[in-house]
Each structure stands twice: as structure tokens, then as C-alpha cells.
Design a protein around this nucleic acid. Structure first.
Lengths: 195, 195
DNA sequence: TGTACATCAGTGAACGCGCGTTCACTGATGTAC
DNA sequence: TGTACATCAGTGAACGCGCGTTCACTGATGTAC
């Protein structure tokens, strides 16, 4: 198990690639090329295959990284909220203009779900696991009769908000975009954040 | 204004291209090539530019065709519903397993919104106009205090369902997919279809 | 009506380009002695 | 400690391929006379 470069050094590069990919795929779609991606890290495309067996492997890893990134931001939003107001905080963050503008650093469901549906099985499986885990996290703050209902409501809540965010991003008029986000915040708060 | 081929004949070919593109873009994304597309119509790629100035023009036209297609299916679903039950019918159709499986013939919001957000302005403007028009159609069956509230609720309703459908399509497990659709139908019916 | 000509939808070769992937290489660093 | 050798992360040329777009062409059909 000897090696010239420390394992940490190699892992560090791998993580840099994944983090860059997580941003660029969310921003421009998973069709972003490996060439451009490596170039943005001041490396050449050839080195990529020392870290990943194929581009599809990177898509999978970057997708999971996007979910991890989102989880951190969600936790932060929740952390600043008074107890019992966690769902309000999630909504205000998720449907904020800031999140809407930050496609590359935002929710991977809202930027990549439609593309994931066209990806091979391993990517869809990774998406599913991440989605289920995110649902479980949100479910604990959800109202509902039992754990199972909370969980199901959490899935509808998140997938619904992701659709509203995706549509807000797709329209061309900034005023309409703001109106969609605002109406969305009102609706989801009314429907999911009432005690 | 004389011409060798009748204007109808040319327009007919143009429509065939648009219809094929509307299906293929929804199914496989707007990155589907002009070569494959024309080949599927037993034509060669060169002829494409007798009908469109650029691929982007076709993306725009195909997107509008997708909305038109969806509108027809929505009207059909509504037509079969008893008066006052139109929203129930829309939900049962939109979140059906049939619609979920029929990506190519289904709602362009659920299959293309995330990609549209990355397209140039003309495409986003076309999306916006189509979305507004669809909202207006659904709004007349929506409950709400005034026309403006109905309209806004219709936008949230549609964008939310599109997100739920996109997520259902992205997950890998068929049982989970069915559960998401079913929970979605229950939730949207409870929330939007109550008198 | 019959013939000459004009039009242009559709063909297919060609363009420059970027894609994912492979591979012989280089050179910095780790290990062995 | 100093030197010889092994490892392998990263380089950059090359591969076959498909992309969007252009363009000289063909040949069926419409119009003019």
C-alpha cells in the first residue's frame, strides 16, 4: 500500500473535480464537457480518467455532491429558525430570489431532475437514494398523522417546490419570476407550515 | 407569388418536423440532433434549413407544439369530467402512470423546463407565453377569491405538479414512482379540487 | 395543347468544432538499501 | 544520509464520432408563351 502521492492529495483532486462538476452540471446541464470542466480547474482532460471510470460516474458523484450542498444550506436555514418554524424557513430559503439566481449552487432536483430521468440506471438510483434521504430529513419537521404520512408529504412538498423553482427560472420576465416565487412562498407556507 | 410546390405541401413538411421534434425533445432533451431528427422522417439533414433558420428556431416551435399537444389532452380530460370536477380530472390525468410513462407525448414543463432555463431569450419568451396561456386556461376551473388569485393558484398548481411528475420519472424504483404519483394525486386533489 | 424555362424542396458532401475515451510520455515524489 | 529505482498523477496528441450549418446539385413541378 505504498504510494508516491499521498492518498489525501489524490482524493483532494477528485473532490475538486466533483465540486466543480456539481456546480457546472447544475448551471449548464450534464452535457458540460470533461474538457471544459478540467480546463476550469487548470488541468487537462487526460487526467480525468485517473479519478473516474467514465463521465457517467462523475455525473453520479456530482449529483450526490449537489444534494450534500443543498442539505448544508437547508440545515443553515433551519438553524436560524425558531423551533416549530423550520418549514417556514425552508420555504423562504428554497423559493427565495437568491436561490432562484444561484442555479449552480442550488437544488439539484430543480436543475437536474428532468435530465436524470434520461440518465442510465446507476445515476437514477443515486438520485433516488439522495431524494429519499432529503425527504427523511424534511419529514421530521412536517406535520402529518404518522411518520409515513410526514414522509410522503415531504416528498410532495419538495418535488412541488422544485417544479415551481424550475418554472420561475424558465420564464423570461423578471417581474413574473418574482411573482411566481412570492405566490409559491405564500402557498407552501399556507399549506405546509401551518401547525 | 407563384410556386412549384404548393404552400400547403411545404407547410405540411414543416409541421411534420415540428411534431417529430416536439416528441423527441420531450423524450430525449433538446440536445437531439437535427441529423437523427430528419432521418426519423426519412429525410436528410440538409433540407432542414429550407424550413428553419436555426436549430434554436425549431426548439422554440417544438416547445409551443408540446404545449398545444398538452392542451388537447387536458381539454379531453376535462371534457370527460362532470361539471365542477374539472380540476380532479386534470390531476388524475396529469399524475397518472400513463402520462408519467408518456414522456414524449406529455407535458413539456415536466420534461423541458429545466433545459428551457438554459436556452436563449426567444425560447424562454415562448415558454413564458405558453405557460401563461396554460395558466389562464386552468385558472377558470380553479377556486379562489378573484380572477387574479385563481390565475396565481393555477401557476403554482401546474408548476408543482410538473415537479412531482419530473421527480417520479427520475427515480429508479417503479413502486416508489407509483407511490409518488398516488400521493401527489391525493395531495393536489385535497388542496386544489375541494369546492 | 406542347414546349421552354424558372423555381426551389430536398440531397448529400463538406466545413470546423467539441465530445468521451485511450495511451505513450514525463517528472515529481515515495520507498529500499 | 545519499543514491537508485518504482510508482503513478497529470500531460497532450490522437481516435472515431456526431454536432450545426453551408452549399452546389438535382429533378419534379409550376408558369409563360
Amino acid at each position: 500500500m505504498s504510494m508516491r502521492y499521498s492518498a489525501e492529495q489524490k482524493e483532494e483532486t477528485r473532490q475538486r473535480i466533483i465540486r466543480a462538476a456539481a456546480r457546472r452540471f447544475r448551471r449548464h446541464g450534464a452535457s458540460v464537457g470533461i474538457g471544459q470542466l478540467m480546463k476550469s480547474l487548470r488541468m487537462t482532460h487526460g487526467g480525468f480518467y485517473r479519478h473516474f471510470r467514465s463521465k457517467s460516474d462523475l455525473v453520479e458523484a456530482a449529483l450526490l455532491e449537489g444534494f450534500r450542498d443543498m442539505r448544508i444550506q437547508m440545515m443553515e436555514a433551519i438553524g436560524n429558525a425558531p423551533p416549530g418554524r423550520e418549514i417556514d424557513a425552508i420555504i423562504d430559503f428554497y423559493l427565495s430570489e437568491k436561490h432562484c439566481n444561484d442555479v449552480g449552487g442550488g437544488c439539484p432536483i430543480a436543475s437536474l431532475a428532468e435530465e436524470v430521468a434520461r440518465e442510465p440506471l446507476p445515476v437514477r438510483q443515486a438520485f433516488e437514494r439522495a431524494m429519499e434521504s432529503a425527504s427523511a430529513s424534511v419529514a421530521q419537521f412536517m406535520n402529518g398523522e404518522d411518520a409515513e404520512e410526514k414522509r410522503r408529504r415531504a416528498t410532495i412538498f419538495m418535488s412541488g417546490m422544485s417544479g415551481t423553482l424550475a418554472v420561475a427560472r424558465a420564464v423570461s420576465d423578471a417581474a413574473l419570476r418574482r411573482r411566481i416565487l412570492e405566490t409559491g412562498r405564500e402557498f407552501y407556507t399556507e399549506t405546509f407550515a401551518k401547525p
